[in-house]
């Protein structure tokens, strides 16, 4: 499933003194099976942009297409279902008595059959790396990491073909962070899901996504493969962003050791590059 956005403008509180242009004439297309990262400052419009993907916000002007079909009218309901958005701190939306009921919420709303629901809930719980024992517990007695997985399961159980995640690892410890990204990465690779990751963390974006969209003040500032975007450090810094820390380290190292490659985005790449250098030396 692909997403295409053309001439999208969104104005908050239109017609009041608090009026603010959140998105200014955005053109963007995300292809089927892509893993795209959206980065930008707080207030740059990234969250506003993704909320248009499943019709939570309606464009002030411009249009959104899901798989080539315009997101409006009769088909809108069907198209919206293809896009699952996991919000920041999704565990704050848990409310049911048991984990099972919470995950099944969306399916029950859709009016699916009971044994079908049961099958899907159990499959999804395993998919997010939890055991089925957890299903009868109250979501409020779980640990932070578990809650987040349950909340994500609540979206994944609806089997969206496009998954949008807004800061999925915020507030998790380093291990929980790795596990969540492992899960997302898996969904992308084995389930062929189109994934859109909204994040502040340059490290996470550099490590997992294929293409980056850089947003600034409601406009798309840059857009391209991760490597080429993070290579333009000056431009990123001008709008208050940065490259991953390891990239800076490698650039400093290159000043001393000119023969190494400084176009490095992750610690893993850096390690390989340095080992190669040491072996040669």
């Amino acid at each position: 499933m692909s997403i295409k956005v053309t001439g999208l403008t969104y104005v908050y509180m239109k017609g009041t003194p608090f009026e603010k242009i959140a998105l200014d004439n955005i053109d963007l297309s995300i292809e089927t099976g892509e893993f795209v990262g959206i980065i930008g400052h707080t207030g740059s419009g990234k969250s506003t942009l993704v909320q248009h993907f499943n019709g939570l916000l309606k464009p002030t002007s411009g249009s959104v297409y899901i798989n080539g079909e315009k997101l409006e009218g009769k088909r809108a309901r069907e198209l919206k279902r293809q896009v699952g958005i996991v919000f920041q701190y999704p565990e704050h939306q848990l409310f049911e008595e048991t984990v099972y009921k919470d995950i099944a919420f969306g399916l029950i709303k859709r009016g699916e059959e009971e044994n079908e629901i049961d099958k899907k809930v159990r499959k999804t719980v395993r998919m997010v790396g939890l055991s089925e024992d957890i299903l009868d517990k109250s979501p409020f007695e779980l640990s932070g990491g578990q809650k987040r997985r349950v909340a994500m399961a609540g979206i994944l159980v609806l089997e969206p073909s496009i998954l949008v995640l807004d800061e999925p690892a915020a507030g998790l410890d380093p291990r929980g962070r790795d596990e969540i990204f492992e899960l997302i990465s898996n969904l992308h690779k084995s389930n062929k899901m189109t994934v859109v990751l909204v994040s502040h963390s340059m490290e996470d974006v550099a490590k997992y996504v294929e293409r980056v969209v850089v947003m600034n003040k409601g406009r798309i500032e840059m857009c391209g493969p991760v490597r080429s975007v993070f290579n333009k450090i000056d431009e990123l810094e001008r709008i208050g962003l940065a490259a991953p820390q390891i990239t800076y380290l490698m650039k400093r190292l290159k000043e001393k050791i000119p023969e190494i490659n400084d176009n490095i985005l992750t610690v893993g790449e850096a390690k390989a590059e340095l080992e190669k250098y040491i072996r040669k030396a």
């Binding site: 699952g84 999704p90 939306q93 919420f105 969306g106 399916l107 859709r110 979206i155 609806l158």
Partner: peptide, 13 residues
């Protein structure tokens, strides 16, 4: 607003 959007994303009406 945030919670309503989150629940709407998973099918609440």
């Amino acid at each position: 607003d945030k919670i309503m959007k989150a629940q709407a994303s998973r099918g609440a009406d």
